[in-house]
């Protein structure tokens, strides 16, 4: 459970912004169609972690939102376990770019969001505890999100996502806004979690190192309209080290080059 098949996916927006008077930009006339995604073909095996890279504004997040069912494709299909995606579902949880913990609920209530239908309240409480422990937030169960640091919020959100035991995790640049150390730490935790739970994960990021350190595969998208430019399996064992794995650092340079950076250190 957790197989994703994307076929000939395309997304076109209609630009409804009114044309400005005397505007020289003839391409921005009202009703202009803006193609964001074009002919995306992608298959994720069950349990695979795929990191999607691409220039900013290329439509990475749009792609993710379509697969998760928050948005509809203009062309093509998305099949999850053979069935077309009809909308969001608690079988595939989305971790948003900015904290989406409900600010009026405590950590415990947030983590329990997906478990609220369990009849056995005792078992439910135990399960919530378990996931809170897993992300090392013991002692903060009754704190509200505003009382947590950025990293703790991310952990709580991960616990909330994992607590429903989803088939698929979607992550949209989940490390945005974290300081460098916290970023590395949470990244480590996500990798460990992936090794341990083996959930299909689709991870959108603009950080090439994140993608190379975490992914079972990286996919590089081109600029608008986004197409798959590169899809490469990474078989290096984790934890990965750019110094030791020559192939990895070469790939890193290649990807940087592909995204238009020529002298990345």
């Amino acid at each position: 459970m957790g197989h994703i098949l994307i076929e000939n996916l395309g997304k076109t927006y209609i630009d409804r912004r009114r044309k400005q008077r005397n505007s020289k930009d003839k391409n921005r006339s009202p009703g202009t169609q803006v193609q964001v995604l074009k002919d995306i073909n992608l298959e994720l095996e069950d349990g695979e972690m795929v990191c999607i890279l691409g220039p900013s504004g290329c439509g990475k997040s749009t792609l993710l939102r379509i697969i998760a069912g928050f948005d509809r494709p203009s062309e093509g299909t998305v099949l999850i376990d053979g069935k077309p995606v009809k909308g969001p579902s608690s079988d595939h949880i989305f971790v948003f770019q900015h904290s989406s913990l409900l600010p009026w609920m405590t950590v415990r209530q947030n983590v329990g969001l997906g478990l609220r239908h369990m009849n056995d309240k005792k078992a439910m409480g135990k399960q919530i505890e378990e996931y809170i422990e897993m992300v090392e937030l013991e002692g903060f169960e009754d704190h509200y999100p505003y009382q947590l640091s950025g990293g703790m919020k991310r952990r709580a959100e991960l616990a909330r996502a994992l607590a429903v035991d989803p088939d698929i995790l979607f992550m949209d640049e989940p490390f945005t806004g974290l300081d460098y150390l916290t970023h590395l730490k949470i990244r480590e935790e996500v990798v460990n979690m992936h090794e341990f739970l083996g959930k299909t994960t689709l991870f959108v990021t603009h950080d090439i190192d994140d993608a190379l350190v975490m992914g079972d595969r990286i996919v590089v998208l081109s600029g608008r309209p986004a197409k798959v430019k590169l899809s490469r399996k990474l078989t290096y064992v984790r934890p990965r080290d750019f110094m030791k794995e020559k192939g990895l650092s070469e790939l890193r340079e290649e990807v940087f080059f592909m995204l238009g950076v020529h002298y990345a250190v």
Binding site: P88, S90, F94, F96, L102, L113
Partner: peptide, 23 residues
């Protein structure tokens, strides 16, 4: 984003009102 969360966790209309909109 809170409505997205609600949809993601299969909130029905009543839950959306009680757990998202009102608070």
């Amino acid at each position: 984003v809170f409505f997205h969360v609600a949809a993601n966790f299969n909130f029905n209309r009543y839950e959306q009102l009680k757990k998202i909109i009102i608070p």
